[in-house]
Each structure stands twice: as structure tokens, then as C-alpha cells.
């Protein structure tokens, strides 16, 4: 699905990613853990195509194509989705309207007929049910006045509608109560299939109780210092991160 090779990236001349190597196959679920400020959001943002980062070295190949050459919207059309750590509010822009524009832009790109309002509304209603998002959120401004948890749920709702091939969830579980966590996990598990991949950035083992990862990575100091199975997450929860660094230095 995606192959990241020796990725170095900086912001304002400050090196943040210092040689990331990561390969994610179709159908796999990977978790990325690591202390604050280690570069997890930077990595997610670079994959999604955010401006402001300079890739100084390395490559990202997605479905056989050079990802770094694509605009963020092209990446979205090709199936990349980022659930933001901090979703922004866009006052006055109807939530459903934004999504419909996105879905139809993608369909146009794929040479498919655009969905009309009624067809789209059907899809949206169904997906809203999946993440237990009240219908009233559909017609509100994008994230306008949503609580933290509602914003996160809205991200998962958008993911469900856009049906990406590679979903990046950047701390979607942070700040969620247990019910919301279950709902979010449900949405992700629903999406799981043999030709879709998921990357979950998280600090907590508890999300991984709901969504079983195939691989767990530890991102520290701009590098992936350790990779393991889901037991690694348990170990991190127990022992913290310092030992990983020591082990890597040894």
C-alpha cells in the first residue's frame, strides 16, 4: 500500500523526521506510538500532503506512485484519509455539503457519475448511524461548536463516507470517554478489509483493545526505534519509552 523510505523532513529548518522507514501492506493495521513531540503528527501530515514541511531526503511510494508529487486533494482521491488530531472549525460551511463536494470531486476524478443530493443523503444517513452521530450534526457547520469528542467522531464519520484505502488516525482516541472510544473503534473495524490499511497514532493501549493492530511501531526522536506485535503496546504502557531509546542506543 505505502512504502516510506529513509524519510527526512524539517520545519523552518529544524529537522523533525530523521530517516523513517515504514512499509504498510494492504489489509494491515499499524499502530504508531511515541512520546509527545516525537514527530507522529508530522509524519501523518506529510503523508496527507500538508504545506510547510520540507522533505529533505527519502521517498514515499503509495500504490506504486510517487506520493510526494501529489496535491492533498489528489491524495484524497487516491484514497488517503487523515483524521486530524485537532479538527478545525469552518463556520457556516455545512458538514454534509463539504463531504458531498469531496466525494463528488473524487468520483469525477475516477470518471464516475456524481451523486445527487438524495443518493448522497442516503449514504450519509447510514454512515452517521454507524458512528452514532446524531442527524443534527449533518447540517451543522463543519465542527462548528462541536465538543472535542464530537469532533473526533465527526472525523470517523467522514472517514466512513469517504471510504479511504489508507486511513491515518492521529490521536483520534485522545480525550474520548469509553463509549465514544467504542464507537470510534467500531467505525474503524467496519472499514477494515483486505484492501484497506489503517495507521493509528495513539498514546494508549486501550484503543488497541478495541482495534487489534498487526504491527506496533515506536516513533522517537524522528525515527522508528522499535517495531513489534501488539504485545509491544502493552510493554510500552507498563514501562514507558526510555528503555526503547536505551535499547536502540545499545
Amino acid at each position: 500500500m505505502i512504502e516510506i523510505k529513509d524519510l527526512h523532513a524539517s520545519v523552518d529548518g529544524k529537522a523533525i523526521l530523521k530517516g523513517i522507514n515504514l512499509t504498510i501492506g494492504a489489509g494491515e493495521v499499524h499502530a504508531i506510538m511515541g512520546p509527545n513531540g516525537s514527530g507522529k503528527s508530522t509524519l501523518s501530515n506529510i503523508i496527507a500532503g500538508r504545506d510547510g514541511y520540507t522533505v529533505t531526503k527519502g521517498s514515499i511510494t503509495y500504490k506504486g506512485k510517487n506520493l510526494l508529487e501529489m496535491s492533498p486533494e489528489q491524495r484524497s482521491w487516491e484514497g488517503i484519509f487523515l483524521a486530524f488530531q485537532y479538527p478545525v472549525e469552518i463556520p457556516g460551511v455545512n458538514n454534509t455539503y463539504l463531504l458531498k463536494a469531496g466525494v463528488n470531486a473524487k468520483r469525477k476524478h475516477q470518471g464516475l457519475q456524481e451523486l445527487d443530493a438524495i443518493e448522497f443523503l442516503q449514504i450519509v444517513r447510514e454512515k452517521a448511524k454507524l458512528v452514532e452521530l446524531d442527524q443534527s450534526f449533518l447540517s451543522r457547520g463543519v465542527n462548528e461548536g462541536f465538543s472535542g469528542g464530537e469532533k473526533k467522531r465527526n472525523e470517523i464519520f467522514q472517514m466512513a463516507v469517504l471510504e479511504p484505502s489508507l486511513a491515518l488516525l492521529d490521536e483520534t482516541d485522545s480525550g474520548l470517554d469509553i463509549d465514544a472510544l467504542r464507537i470510534v473503534a467500531n467505525g474503524v473495524n467496519h472499514l477494515r478489509s483486505k484492501d484497506r490499511s489503517v495507521v493509528m497514532v495513539t498514546h494508549y493501549q486501550r484503543l488497541l483493545d478495541y482495534i487489534q493492530p498487526d504491527v506496533v511501531h515506536v516513533l522517537m526522536d524522528g525515527k522508528i526505534l522499535k517495531t513489534g506485535g501488539k504485545d509491544l503496546a502493552l510493554e510500552l504502557e507498563e514501562r514507558g519509552y526510555d528503555w526503547v531509546r536505551q535499547e536502540a542506543a545499545a
Binding site: S71, E73, S76, F84, A101, A105, K106, Q158
Partner: peptide, 17 residues
């Protein structure tokens, strides 16, 4: 960027906002 990451071009995103 939020709009673009949902598949909307920059120009359409400005209009929408």
C-alpha cells in the same frame, strides 16, 4: 488543508469558506 484533505481543490475550498 482540511478541505483539501477531503478531496476539495484549494480554489473550491476558498469559495466554500
Amino acid at each position: 488543508f482540511y478541505c483539501q484533505s477531503r478531496g476539495i481543490s484549494e480554489e473550491d475550498a476558498v469559495n466554500m469558506i
